[in-house]
Design a protein around this nucleic acid. Sequence first.
DNA 1: CGTATTCTTGATTGGCATCAATCCAGGTGG
DNA 2: CCACCTGGATTGATGCCAATCAAGAATACG
Lengths: 230, 230
Amino acid sequence: MALICETCIARASDLCGAFAGGEIAVLDAIAVRLRVEAGGYLFHEEASADFVYNISSGMGLLERLASDGRRQIMSFTQPGDFIGLSPTPVYRISAQALTEMTACRWRIGDLEALFGEHPELERRLRLIANRVLATTLDQVFVLGRRNANEKLAYLLLYLAERQARIFGPSDEVWLPMTRGDIADYLGVTVETASRTFGVLRRKGLIALPAADRVVLADRASLAELADREP
Amino acid sequence: MALICETCIARASDLCGAFAGGEIAVLDAIAVRLRVEAGGYLFHEEASADFVYNISSGMGLLERLASDGRRQIMSFTQPGDFIGLSPTPVYRISAQALTEMTACRWRIGDLEALFGEHPELERRLRLIANRVLATTLDQVFVLGRRNANEKLAYLLLYLAERQARIFGPSDEVWLPMTRGDIADYLGVTVETASRTFGVLRRKGLIALPAADRVVLADRASLAELADREP
DNA sequence: CGTATTCTTGATTGGCATCAATCCAGGTGG
DNA sequence: CCACCTGGATTGATGCCAATCAAGAATACG
């Protein structure tokens, strides 16, 4: 029996990790595999929130658009992330792929049906929600109370920490998103985002071997800027 | 048997509502009642996150302080709110009382011990986390992408909607918090918060019979400013 | 190789912060 | 009862950070 799950990068993710060894077959059986090309969407704001997703591979983002076009990015996603839970009947965010992306999709009701047999699954969903909430509160603080330099320092350290989980520890961070995406995450304009990269570079805190690769040259100073552990 | 729960304003709250009728005795038995005077704290940032709380009466706020003193308010709390869940071993926020406040406190482990007998309790905790997360994402958008006028319009409509649940629908909103608290919620300064009240008042969108009472005189325009349902 | 998109940089503007003073309400004590 | 005090709220003057407007450079792509 060769389940896709058994070789999946996200096998130990918050969600799938709820099933030990062969148990994963239960989850596998009711999953639908999806592939989305770069620029495509897993789901759209305003669409009926029937499904939840676990990212298997690829990078993406979660965004919300206002009626006048202003955009706020809520999160950058990577393999292992569980997304799509919504307390409202329609999604309040869209999930876009930054690179080619694969994911598993479940009807939320199908997952809930497993809670009886697999209480660990429900516990995981609870923990995921709590963890995402904690991260979002960090973001609230950053958006409300920090300036452009501090915001970017925060994002770079945050991405480094997250990418360490999939690529291993490194001082180099990959930025699969555009400067515009970064700006919309930090609540600034593209120009300010671009200038801020320049500021941190001239200060020697980072190096930019390419637009989409940042070297954290001085983690201590970055951490101080971000008011955070290095 | 006269349980405190039976006459509690928060009897039907997200948490306590998980127990129908007499079942509530289970929750009542392991609850500790607390009273905190205005200005006091239910729990402090950095303290060990052993307890969770359900607000029985009174208004409060959840705040985070940076090492340099900058403050961000994450939420204003009211009766029925469930707070204190933390994915980290220490709280990342403090819970302060704005008025005299009463609350029930549980050791988080004691609640978890009930999950087997009362699966509805775990479901509620999951839903609460999801709902708080959704609200926090709204806040992220507001902090990242809206100007001072829009921010205040959003807060007033949000408070009106929440207070309607405990006081009933009304065009008058009570502001038990100071202008400084409002500023720290919206990510602006006290002066800007104060000026912004003035702007909305001169535009005729609100009236201010007292500093702590706002009349939503023109909900439609406020909703348009906030990009939100009236 | 040409075109489109993204990124960067410059000049200027504008919104909010900062600094500073005054106003006001509630509480206190003479 | 009222002068005084205190913390919060408001208003004004000025400055600064990031937005906006504009142009050019680098990179990706057909």
